[in-house]
Design a binder for these strands. Structure first.
Lengths: 237, 237
DNA sequence: CTACCTTACTTGTATATACAAGTACAAATA
DNA sequence: TATTTGTACTTGTATATACAAGTAAGGTAG
């Protein structure tokens, strides 16, 4: 299979993003001006601006006419939900993943309230459950359902340390571009009580998500339960 | 004060957006092609593409090379949170607002965990509490805190039926461009129990938000409590 | 009838260019 | 000294153009 060439505006986006994530550019810093970026990367202004526009959309920078591109702190998360501790900041904390139900193929029963089409229904569904822990305390419990359309060897892959998004992107050229979500506060039922080791009536955040990808008509679904008593979900909008 | 001219890509964006919102273009329809839009509005492709890019970012359309721009259903909400009933769809339902604490000027005590700078602190804070009801049942309870920087006559305005965002935009040229948020599931304390008429231990969604505006360095803060037992928060990401 | 190819149309990427408008700072002015 | 002006630099808007690449549909050869 031919490797799709990465467009140059995307390369610049990734480059600048990495520099901000690794702390080379800190919050409040100014990025090099558009003209400087043009010269440094042998690109023209529209191309550079496209990369910067993407960084604005993702919340990495703010731009001001006459001033420049101002580096922001936390970016807005696409897909991956960021966490912030009520006391400590995450980062030093140890994040682990425990597979509750290994990926296996079942038939579609539901998709958390989202519609699925006939094609997806006939192909079956890859089902998995994971528990994510911070410092050995469970914080996320999620159920993921993926239509079984041409994803060879998927069920035998390991999902321990690598993110699902990364595997889909690297091995199947599937990128999550956005989606739909429903958010609710609920009280823990028996199953959730067991997973999170909490008492009855403990408040839990529940998010149902439909993830849309770059492959036309290919979506997958996930239901996330989150114990927010020690960590809040944070993000930009 | 001179009225700022609206750029043409934004005019086109608003126009297309309106056509989708009022149902002229329905879910699954194709928008006119870029070249057709160019001809119809006397613009060039880069300008038209900018408007379409914005519609993609807001979740109104998906685009596919070789095919066209496909109209989507619900858009993603900036600032205003959309609701979806578990049984009925919202729309026929009656939405009302009840002012619990009228806008008044107090001193800053907190900003829901977000930082405020010295300038904002010295100017005082406009404080208000509102309750929003659907079919006479309370669903949202929110506290808003706005730095009192040059907002003449703000405390005497009415917030009954008009949205805060609309008033800020129309009268003070303040547009919310994005922000930061923290989401948690909590159980109702006494005050919330009273407002929502729910029992002890009822799960409530709590969102703390910092809203950033087009005026540099001007942000305001809001804390939203939401009873999600009948309505989920929905949105695109 | 089926499989392949061509063609016309679509969006994607990229360059080159021009002027408008906002910001910061230094120089000139009152 | 305090204020205004000018200037250089920044991002914002817009046009014109070219070619690449994906999609759908119709024609053609087998």
């Amino acid at each position: 299979m031919a490797v799709k060439e990465v467009p140059s505006y995307r390369r610049l986006y990734e480059k600048l993003r990495k520099l901000m994530e690794d702390g080379t550019y800190k919050r409040g810093d100014l990025l090099p001006s558009e003209n400087e970026l043009c010269a440094a990367h042998h690109l023209t202004r529209p191309t550079v601006r496209k990369a910067l526009d993407m960084l604005v959309n993702d919340g990495f920078i703010l731009r001001h006419q006459g001033l420049g591109s101002i580096v922001q702190g936390q970016p807005k998360g696409i897909g991956i939900l960021s966490l912030s501790g009520t006391t400590s900041a995450i980062g030093q904390d140890i994040l682990t993943t425990r597979i509750i139900v290994k990926p296996n193929i079942i038939s579609w029963e539901q998709a958390f309230g989202f519609e699925i089409n006939e094609n997806e229904k006939s192909m079956g569904c890859i089902y998995m459950e994971r528990l994510r822990l911070i410092n050995d305390r469970p914080v996320f419990y999620d159920i993921t359902m993926i239509p079984n359309l041409n994803l060879p060897r998927f069920t035998s892959r390991t999902f321990e340390n690598r993110s699902l998004f990364e595997i889909l992107r690297k091995h199947y050229q599937l990128e999550v571009k956005g989606g739909e979500q429903k958010i609710q506060a609920i009280t823990a039922d028996e199953r959730i009580q067991k997973h999170f080791e909490v008492r009855k009536n403990h408040p839990i955040l529940r998010i149902d998500r439909k993830m849309e990808t770059n492959r036309m008509g290919f979506s997958f679904f996930s239901q996330i339960y989150c114990n927010t008593s020690d960590y809040s979900l944070i993000g930009r909008f």
